[in-house]
Design a protein around this nucleic acid. Structure first.
Length: 787
DNA sequence: TTAGGATTAG
């Protein structure tokens, strides 16, 4: 029997311990040594109720105090007893009993910092060959004990595990708390620039407060095993700090986590690397309640997209199996994966040296039409290299991009995992127990089986496997071939002119045409967005954020001038950042009727802010104008920076045509009955010639009689998407790409392309050398059922 | 220490 009662009287044991056991001193405990023949001895000063772990194993935690030093907590140690031994021990033990624990495993105690006990704990179970001898102290001995050590009366109490969980709206700076939350966002663990892995997790709970936690650990396994949005986590001992005016969670010593599937009805099995954790019925109830709350308050990610459903220009999470991998260059690495379905578009193959390609050659060949090549970049390379062939992966925020090589006419789809961790971009390894992996394996095995029955014809099995998806696509395309995918918004009474006739005619003229879109430029649609000045007719690229950042940094060198604060038309606040830079930031809130407006109606001016701070302000306030102080007035920054930010849109002014006027001119708008803060009106009073966002594209149109290149110059009318929002709105980017895929489906022959109805005008452009005829599309829009 | 959510543009 692993738990034995030994009777002792007057300090002498009636039954001796087995002779092979040697006593080990608490001071000399070390991890990793063989403790099969060792025992430690101590008095039980604390015991927790017997409980069941997540997998049903009985568990008992007992604290033993070294008999040689009864006063110091550092001489007490946590004993974690598993299985039947826990049950047996709970039956016989009393506080004050002397325990002899033999054949234990020593591990670091995650709670040592918190409970002040020994830095290690002991793990014992029958399976590990452990034994516990409980020395029952007879009455007189016990009396002597209490006489000698009266201060031990207090610790001799049952202590229920006291884990208090703090709701997210009750968090306080500088505390260490336990909490539950539903995962609203997460970055799968990645290698940080320091020494640890890092994972960022944003939680919400029914208080509707968000908490972003930054978790570090040198051991990948010790970070929460979160696989999707909606997972539920329990964090123990997370430190709360204030950062940028918001509460933030960060790992503290002894941090521990459990993760649960967030779907109501799924088994409640905690995912954790820790063998030691408590999980009681009450906590099960908490998970169920959070699942119910999350079901109606969080958009839990649905089944991840399959390769058969991918569209170009999407960011999506792919659950797949790794079939091959290869080095490409210093900053990129190739992963060859499959998910049992076939991508409906031609996919790119990344050229690599045969000897660099790891993976089973026969399988790589057999699955060559089902695997896709994913190029991972920069910070993901190191992790990608370490992945094992055959492992199951979830690749987060994988980007599909449509591209065509210069020499090819037909475009293909590329899969990129770009550098950085924005939007949770990264790679996670899923365990075989994961429900999505189980489902994936069923799918892969069915393809494998079909493959082994018919090795000669992998093509037919691939077709069968994705037949429904292919037919969906075909029927969509058929519809596109019957009806024109663009329509005229005017001039419907005109009849069509053949392209052959148009190209042989003189300009300027206007025509109605019916043609197919053979190809278009730029293929990277984000490159089609330009800024246009309607006064000087110039076109320019949209400046990138780095340039804006530099201008902000430059202007932050000059501190705000306090003499310009709090005027008749704005109220000012100023503060200094807590970091080393001691940066001064001033915000001037423009008043209406001498009162501040609601944030969503407010225009504010900011001095000394960073890109991120400005971006955050635009989330809450209607308009943000970055400014700087001069000796006697506030002024706009250089016009390479946006002069106004509203929502996601940055508004720019034309450098040539603008004559900036004093900012106090804004007070005239503020004095209106209901200031609307329209960008055009703001630009006007500030002497700014507002640049308009436009799509500029070149369409190569054909109709069987001829071909011509026509320019599309569109603010919003053609795509029914505002050009001003496309760069910052992923949904609109996808929508535009899908529209282009309908107008010009990738990988299709000319016969299969849909018809476009367009109105075009020809015009002459004369340069120093010659005169040329150009064509521009106008009064045309994408058909309603295509958008 | 690391990162502190807010896509790349290869």
């Amino acid at each position: 029997m692993p738990v034995q009662l030994l009777k002792i009287t007057e300090g002498q044991s009636e039954t001796p311990l087995p002779s092979h056991l040697q006593k080990k001193d608490l001071k000399h405990l070390e991890e990793g040594c063989d403790h099969a023949d060792k025992y430690i001895q101590g008095v039980a000063v604390l015991s927790y109720p017997l409980m069941k772990l997540g997998d049903g194993t009985d568990f008992l935690k007992v604290v033993l105090q070294d008999l040689d030093n009864l006063c110091s907590r550092i001489n007490s140690i946590n004993i974690l007893i598993y299985g039947k031994m826990a049950e047996d021990c709970a039956k016989v033990m009393r506080h004050g009993d002397i325990f002899v624990v033999a054949g234990f495993k020593v591990n670091n105690s995650p709670t040592a910092r918190e409970d002040g006990r020994h830095r290690c704990h002991l793990e014992v179970s029958e399976e590990a060959g452990s034994a516990i001898y409980v020395r029952v102290i007879l009455c007189e001995c016990l009396n002597n004990f209490f006489l000698l050590f009266p201060h031990f009366i207090m610790p001799f109490q049952f202590v229920a595990p006291k884990y208090v969980y703090t709701p997210l709206n009750h968090l306080k700076d500088g505390t260490i708390v336990n909490l539950y939350g539903v995962v609203k966002f997460f970055k799968p663990p990645y290698i940080s620039k320091g020494t640890d892995y890092c994972s960022v997790v944003t939680l919400v709970d029914p208080s509707n407060v968000k908490l972003t936690c930054t978790l570090f650990n040198g051991n990948l396994d010790s970070l929460p095993k979160i696989y999707k949005i909606g997972d539920i986590v329990r964090f123990h001992r997370i430190k709360i700090r204030e950062y940028n005016g918001q509460m933030q969670g960060i790992t503290s010593g002894g941090f521990a986590s459990l993760t649960f599937d967030g779907n109501a009805g799924a088994p409640i099995v905690p995912r954790t690397s820790s063998k030691v954790y408590t999980f009681m019925d009450e906590e099960q109830k908490t998970i169920e309640e959070l699942r119910l709350w999350a079901a109606s308050n969080i958009s839990i990610s649905g089944p991840a997209a399959k390769l058969s459903c991918v569209q170009p220009m999407l960011y999506f999470d792919l659950t797949c199996q790794l079939v091959g991998k290869a080095k490409v260059d210093g900053s990129s690495f190739l992963l060859k994966v499959w998910d049992g379905t076939k991508c409906p578009y031609p996919t790119w193959k990344v050229p690599v040296e045969a000897e660099d390609l790891e993976g089973e050659k026969a399988l790589l060949h057999q699955l060559r039409n089902l695997t896709v090549d994913i190029l991972v970049y920069d910070n993901h390379v190191q992790l990608a290299k370490s992945l094992k062939i055959g492992s199951f992966l979830r690749i987060y925020s994988l980007h599909t991009k449509q591209a065509s090589a210069d020499s090819e006419d037909v475009s293909h789809i590329e899969f990129h995992l770009h550098g950085g961790t924005g939007y949770g971009r990264g790679i996670g390894v899923l365990p075989e127990s994961n429900p999505d992996v189980k489902e994936l394996k069923v799918c892969l095995e069915s393809v494998d089986q079909a493959g082994s029955q018919n090795m000669e014809s992998t093509a037919s099995l691939e077709f069968d496997d994705t037949f429904s998806n292919v037919t969906d696509l075909e029927s969509h395309l058929q519809r596109c071939q019957q009806l024109p995918v663009t329509v005229l918004t005017d001039h419907q009474d005109l009849s069509n002119t053949e392209l052959k006739t148009i190209v042989s005619s003189t300009a300027p003229q206007q025509y109605r045409i019916r043609a197919k879109l053979r190809t278009y430029k730029p293929q990277k649609l984000h490159q089609s967005v330009k800024l246009h000045c309607s006064k000087c007719n110039s076109l320019q690229e949209v400046p990138d954020a780095d340039g804006f950042d530099l201008i902000l940094q430059g202007s932050a060198i000059t501190a705000p001038n306090p003499e310009l604060h709090n005027t008749s038309w704005y109220d000012s606040v100023m503060w200094t950042t807590q970091d080393q830079k001691q940066r001064k930031i001033a915000i001037h809130f423009v008043k209406h009727d001498e009162m501040l407006q609601q944030p969503e109606d407010t225009l504010l001016m900011i001095e000394g802010g960073t890109l991120k701070e400005i971006w955050k302000l635009t989330k809450r306030f209607n308009c943000v104008i970055p400014v700087r102080s001069t000796e006697d007035d506030l002024e706009l920054l250089d016009l390479s920076a946006p002069f106004l930010l509203q929502g996601n849109v940055k508004y720019y002014g034309c450098k040539q045509c603008s004559t900036p006027k004093p900012l106090r001119n804004l007070s005239s708008i503020a004095a209106e009955q209901r200031p609307s803060w329209e960008p055009a009106e703001i630009a006007q009073v500030l002497g700014i010639e507002l640049l308009q966002y436009v799509f500029v594209m070149k369409f190569t149109l054909v109709d069987g009689t001829g071909a011509l290149n026509a320019y599309l110059f569109d603010h919003e009318k053609f795509f029914q998407i505002p050009a001003s929002e496309i760069l910052t709105n992923n949904f609109l980017q996808e929508k535009m790409q899908m529209t282009m895929n309908t107008l010009c489906p990738p990988g299709k022959k000319l016969d299969d392309l849909p018809w476009l109805e367009c109105f075009i005008k020809s015009y002459n452009v004369r340069d120093a050398i010659k005169q040329q005829v150009y064509y521009q599309i106008f009064d045309t829009t994408v058909a309603e059922d295509v958008v």
